[in-house]
Simulated assay, not measured.
Amino acid sequence: MTANVRASAPTGGWHAELTAHRDSRGEFVEWYRASRFTAETDVPFTVAQANMSISKRGVIRGVHYFADGSGQAKYVTCAHGEVLDVAVDLRIGSPTFGRWTVTPMSQDRPSAAYLPVGFGHAFVACSDRAVMLYLCDREYVPGAELTVHPLDADLALPWPTELPRILSERDDSAPTLREVRERGLLPRF
Score class of each variant (00 low, 15 high):
Pro150Met: 03
Pro158Phe: 05
Leu146Ile: 03
Glu139Gln: 15
Asp152Thr: 00
Trp159Tyr: 09
Leu157Met: 13
Tyr134Asp: 11
Thr147Trp: 01
Gly143His: 07
Val148Phe: 09
Asp137Ser: 09
Ser127Glu: 07
His149Met: 05
Asp128Arg: 13
Ser127Gly: 14
Leu151Val: 02
Ala144Leu: 08
Ala156Tyr: 01
Ser127Ala: 14
Tyr134Ile: 10
Ala156Val: 00
Ala144Phe: 14
Pro160Asn: 06
Pro150Lys: 04
Gly143Glu: 07
Leu157Asn: 12
Leu157Lys: 09
Leu146Glu: 15
Pro158Val: 10
Leu157Arg: 08
Asp154Thr: 00
His149Pro: 09
Pro160His: 08
Tyr134Gln: 09
Pro160Thr: 12
Ala153Glu: 05
Leu157Gln: 06
Ser127Lys: 04
Cys136Ala: 15
Glu162Cys: 11
Pro150Val: 11
Arg138Val: 08
Tyr134Gly: 04
Glu145Tyr: 11
Ala144Cys: 06
Ser127Asn: 08
Thr147Leu: 03
His149Asn: 13
Glu139His: 14
Leu133Gly: 04
Cys136Gln: 07
Gly143Gln: 11
Glu139Asp: 11
Ala153Leu: 01
His149Gly: 09
Leu155Phe: 01
Leu133Glu: 04
Thr161Glu: 15
Asp128Cys: 03
Val148Tyr: 05
Met132His: 02
Met132Asn: 03
Pro158Ile: 11
Glu139Cys: 12
Asp128Ala: 12
Tyr134Trp: 06
Pro158Tyr: 05
Cys136Tyr: 02
Pro160Tyr: 04
Asp152Gly: 01
Glu139Ala: 10
Leu151Pro: 01
Val148Lys: 06
Pro150Gln: 04
Ala144Tyr: 07
Thr161Lys: 14
Glu145Lys: 14
Ala153Met: 00
Ala130Ser: 13
Met132Gln: 08
Val131Tyr: 02
Arg138Thr: 11
Leu135Phe: 14
Glu162Tyr: 10
Arg129Cys: 14
Asp128Tyr: 02
Pro150Ser: 12
Val148Ala: 09
Leu155Arg: 00
Glu145Ile: 09
Leu135Gln: 07
Cys136Met: 12
Pro142Cys: 12
Ala130Arg: 01
Glu145Thr: 13
Arg138Cys: 13
Leu151Asp: 07
Ser127Tyr: 06
Leu157Asp: 10
Arg138Ile: 03
Thr161Ile: 05
Met132Ala: 04
Pro160Gln: 13
Pro160Met: 04
Leu146Asn: 15
Val131Asn: 02
Pro142Ala: 15
Thr161Val: 06
Met132Thr: 10
Ser127Gln: 09
Ala153Thr: 03
Glu139Phe: 13
Asp128His: 13
Thr147Gly: 15
Val141Pro: 07
Glu145Ser: 08
Asp137Lys: 14
Thr147Pro: 02
Pro142Gln: 14
Leu155Thr: 00
Glu145Arg: 05
Trp159Asn: 15
Arg138Asp: 12
Ala156Arg: 03
Glu162Phe: 06
Leu157Pro: 13
Leu146Gln: 09
Tyr140Asn: 12
Asp152Pro: 01
Ser127Leu: 07
Leu135Lys: 15
Pro142Ile: 11
Ala153Phe: 01
Ala130Cys: 13
Leu133Thr: 11
Val141Tyr: 08
Val148Thr: 08
Tyr140Arg: 11
Pro150Leu: 04
Leu135Gly: 15
Ala130Leu: 03
Arg138Pro: 10
Val148Ile: 12
Leu151Ser: 02
Ser127Arg: 07
Asp128Ile: 05
Leu155Ser: 03
Pro160Glu: 07
His149Val: 09
Val148Arg: 04
Pro150Gly: 05
Glu145Cys: 13
